[in-house]
Amino acid sequence: MAELLQILISGLSSGAIYALAAVGFTLLWQASQTINFAQGEFVMLPAFFVLAGMTLFGLPLWAAILTAFVLSIVILGAMFKKLVVEPMLPHGTMPLVIATIALGLLMKESVKEFYSAQGQPFPSLFPQHVMDFFGASVSVQDLCNLAVAFAAIIALQLFLQRTRTGRAMQATAQDPRVAEILGVDVKRMVMYTFLINGALAAIASILISPVYLAKFSNGETLGMIAFIAAIVGGFNQIRGALVGGLLIGVLDNLAAVYISAEYRTAIPLILLIVIIMVRPQGIMGTSEGRTV
């Protein structure tokens, strides 16, 4: 029982961080039909903003994190929208997909070139203590990661459901033309979505890098897992991305402990295939009709 509890908490902790990245996929898809294949690199980059702030500019950790947040929101949010999405979107989804793949490569290679190809130690925000929880040794860091990730997603949900701006963003996602007729500033709402994605990527990056180390190639795995989580959970639902992320985090741990550590990487892919066959809209997603 204690073992299972430990697996669950550890899996939920990793899964919550995957969920943050997965939510980004769904947000951008809903707001602008953008599938951002650079999402993994979006999670990789903010950690290097923090490290650069600390090592190159001598900032304390808190100031470096604050700077990284601002940079992430500006570069990964506003600039991404203005410089990549807006010029490419009129040409259709496929050119934009290719553009985001190229952007991911550019970000990865730039970090490798200008910072380092090697993994970098990244300071942890939380204490490294271990707690006894019903017989299971539970890391305070895992619990804090879980709490911060959940808090971010709950705050996002509350913002979208309880505020006027949030509801305007939802209206924009559902039908931008009707939203515009109703007086919603659609362009601004879409921009907000990109800014939120930048912020979520920064949170995920700062939570995951103390354990994974900051490395230019981190986005490859993270992006893939987050993409699968978004599909498994439901690409058109934020809560679906949350469920998908958590499910993959827990399943990964369960598979590695009870089935085989060697085949653990196959588990998310098997889950993806099963979901596509059985419930293509994802666990929490809703079917969308298409016309020709």
């Binding site: 697996i7 550890s10 741990n253 590695a256 402990v257 550590a261």
Partner: peptide, 20 residues
């Protein structure tokens, strides 16, 4: 006996397996 892949980032399950 716990193998891991090259570049593996998440070792939580590996440690759990060894612990128990």
């Amino acid at each position: 006996d716990v193998p891991s892949e090259q570049g593996q980032a998440d070792f939580s399950a590996d440690i759990l397996k060894i612990k128990n």
